[in-house]
Simulated assay, not measured.
Amino acid sequence: MASMLISLSHFCDKHGPRILLVTQAAINGSTGDELLVPTYPTDSYCESCLLHFPKSSINDIRSLKSNIGSQCFVSTQYSSIRYQLLTLIIRRSFSEETMIYDGMPLVFYDDIRGLNLVMGFKLNDENARGNERRYCIIFTIDSTDHTSSMQLLSENWNFITGGFDRMVKYICNSHKQELERQNNVNDEKSNFNLLGKTYLRGNKVKVPRNLAELTHDELLFVRLHKWNSFLLNSCMRSSSE
Rank of each mutant, 00 (worst) to 15 (best):
residue 4 M to N: 12
residue 7 S to R: 05
residue 8 L to R: 10
residue 9 S to C: 15
residue 9 S to T: 15
residue 11 F to G: 06
residue 12 C to P: 15
residue 14 K to T: 15
residue 20 L to M: 08
residue 20 L to Y: 02
residue 21 L to C: 11
residue 24 Q to D: 01
residue 24 Q to W: 00
residue 25 A to K: 11
residue 32 G to R: 10
residue 33 D to C: 07
residue 33 D to N: 14
residue 34 E to A: 04
residue 34 E to W: 06
residue 34 E to R: 05
residue 34 E to M: 02
residue 35 L to N: 06
residue 35 L to R: 04
residue 35 L to P: 03
residue 36 L to G: 00
residue 42 T to F: 03
residue 42 T to S: 14
residue 46 C to A: 01
residue 49 C to F: 04
residue 50 L to H: 03
residue 50 L to S: 14
residue 50 L to G: 02
residue 50 L to C: 12
residue 54 P to W: 03
residue 54 P to L: 06
residue 58 I to C: 15
residue 60 D to P: 10
residue 61 I to Q: 00
residue 63 S to C: 08
residue 63 S to P: 05
residue 64 L to R: 07
residue 65 K to I: 01
residue 68 I to S: 01
residue 69 G to R: 08
residue 70 S to A: 08
residue 71 Q to M: 02
residue 71 Q to H: 04
residue 73 F to A: 00
residue 75 S to H: 05
residue 75 S to G: 07
residue 77 Q to P: 09
residue 80 S to F: 04
residue 80 S to K: 14
residue 81 I to L: 12
residue 82 R to I: 07
residue 82 R to Y: 13
residue 83 Y to P: 05
residue 85 L to T: 02
residue 93 S to K: 05
residue 93 S to T: 12
residue 96 E to V: 03
residue 97 E to C: 06
residue 97 E to I: 14
residue 98 T to M: 09
residue 98 T to F: 02
residue 100 I to R: 14
residue 102 D to Q: 12
residue 104 M to Y: 14
residue 107 V to E: 04
residue 107 V to T: 11
residue 107 V to A: 04
residue 108 F to C: 03
residue 112 I to D: 13
residue 113 R to L: 08
residue 116 N to S: 11
residue 122 K to T: 05
residue 123 L to F: 06
residue 125 D to K: 06
residue 125 D to F: 09
residue 125 D to L: 11
residue 129 R to D: 15
residue 130 G to C: 05
residue 132 E to R: 12
residue 135 Y to S: 04
residue 136 C to G: 11
residue 137 I to E: 02
residue 137 I to R: 04
residue 139 F to R: 00
residue 139 F to N: 02
residue 140 T to W: 05
residue 142 D to Q: 10
residue 142 D to K: 11
residue 143 S to P: 00
residue 145 D to F: 13
residue 146 H to Q: 14
residue 147 T to P: 00
residue 147 T to N: 06
residue 147 T to M: 05
residue 148 S to Q: 15
residue 149 S to Q: 08
residue 150 M to V: 07
residue 151 Q to H: 13
residue 151 Q to L: 15
residue 152 L to T: 09
residue 153 L to E: 10
residue 153 L to D: 12
residue 153 L to P: 13
residue 154 S to K: 13
residue 155 E to W: 05
residue 155 E to H: 11
residue 156 N to I: 02
residue 157 W to K: 09
residue 157 W to D: 10
residue 161 T to I: 11
residue 163 G to C: 00
residue 164 F to S: 01
residue 170 Y to K: 14
residue 174 S to L: 11
residue 175 H to L: 08
residue 176 K to Y: 10
residue 176 K to A: 09
residue 177 Q to L: 12
residue 178 E to N: 15
residue 179 L to Q: 12
residue 181 R to E: 08
residue 185 V to S: 09
residue 185 V to I: 10
residue 185 V to F: 10
residue 186 N to I: 08
residue 186 N to C: 08
residue 189 K to C: 14
residue 191 N to K: 15
residue 191 N to H: 08
residue 193 N to W: 15
residue 200 L to C: 03
residue 200 L to S: 07
residue 202 G to I: 01
residue 202 G to E: 11
residue 203 N to Q: 12
residue 204 K to M: 09
residue 205 V to G: 01
residue 206 K to E: 14
residue 207 V to M: 14
residue 210 N to H: 02
residue 211 L to M: 04
residue 214 L to P: 00
residue 215 T to C: 12
residue 217 D to V: 09
residue 218 E to A: 06
residue 220 L to T: 01
residue 221 F to D: 06
residue 221 F to M: 09
residue 226 K to R: 11
residue 230 F to V: 10
residue 230 F to N: 11
residue 230 F to P: 02
residue 233 N to F: 09
residue 234 S to C: 10
residue 241 E to H: 08
